[in-house]
Design a binder for these strands. Structure first.
Lengths: 163, 163
DNA sequence: AGGGTTTTATTGAACCTTCAATAAGCCGGG
DNA sequence: CCCGGCTTATTGAAGGTTCAATAAAACCCT
């Protein structure tokens, strides 16, 4: 049990700098990666991520919920995004055999082709604007930190709100 | 000279894991911080950040462009956000004396009071869901990496596109 | 001083995400 | 069997962000 009479602790100067650097850097980086994909391939970053997840799945199809979970996006968001992608011909919806409620999104050949193209742009962007700017150790540390964040936030249900 | 006739280099397995951890972790973290502020103080994370910037400025006022730059948000976005905050009484707009085109956003007393309250929530969230999960060294590394990202992306104009 | 260019901020529409409500299928206990 | 509760996915509206167009003031420079 935490005696949080005093958890209104501030961040020290170094922590604050790091936190703001992360906020601003993330804003710029996501903006840039998204913009590049849009300009060159008419694809948003979230759409790209969906293509990636589907391309890795067996038979290139995934339940909507699985897709949402793997991206940590809301179900609703995935529904809307997949609808747009379906309209664009990148994906089709297939009713799930084992579960009458279920729907699977399946990558079309066109979607797969687009992914192959867009991957060049995306990977180059990630390398150029992130990976190459950091030492291997620092980049590994970033991974470690956000793995911990993910573990922490997926296990701690938002609804519990222990005080 | 680097033979980057093939700069479609992929990320290696470790880099890819780190990159995805960062993507997912950031999604979850931002979501959570935003949600907490909304639920407890009716404030979005971007709005909170604006309050912070204004509170630190001399006389608690800042030109719209300065605000936008310091957050790395678009001008338009700041215009819209400040308009909402003005409607909520957190901020007022003041014509700029030295520059007839300029507009300054000024923190109201109500805005300042709200910030004081919301800061507890926000700081606790940042500590609990990020800072406390990482070693000091790792967190410092995160700061270093995203400082580099910011430097790189603000100096490299999006329009130039050197190939 | 005047006219072209640049900078500042805003506007409204399009787009994307969230939120609350809804429909439909599953599942377990009586 | 079937009823109530849970999970899955969708829907439409509201909220927030981007984008292109606009207006107004500053700057420049001859």
């Amino acid at each position: 049990m935490k005696t949080d009479t005093q958890d209104a602790l501030w961040l020290d100067a170094a922590q604050q700098r790091a936190w703001r650097a992360y906020l601003v850097g993330t804003t710029l980086l996501m903006d840039r990666l998204d913009r590049d994909l849009r300009e060159k391939h008419d694809l948003s970053l979230p759409e790209y991520e969906i293509l990636v997840r589907l391309s890795e799945a067996t038979d290139r199809r995934l339940r909507m919920a699985a897709l949402a979970d793997s991206l940590s996006h809301s179900r609703s968001r995935v529904t809307h995004t997949v609808s747009r992608m379906e309209r664009a011909g990148l994906v089709t919806r297939v009713a799930c055999v084992s579960d009458g409620r279920g729907v699977e999104a399946r990558l079309t050949d066109e979607g797969f082709r687009l992914l192959e193209e867009a991957a060049h742009t995306h990977v180059r962007g990630v390398r150029e604007h992130l990976v190459e700017l950091a030492s291997d150790d620092d980049f590994t540390a970033v991974g470690r930190v956000f793995d911990a964040v993910t573990d922490h936030l997926v296990s701690a249900q938002p609804g519990l709100d222990i005080r």
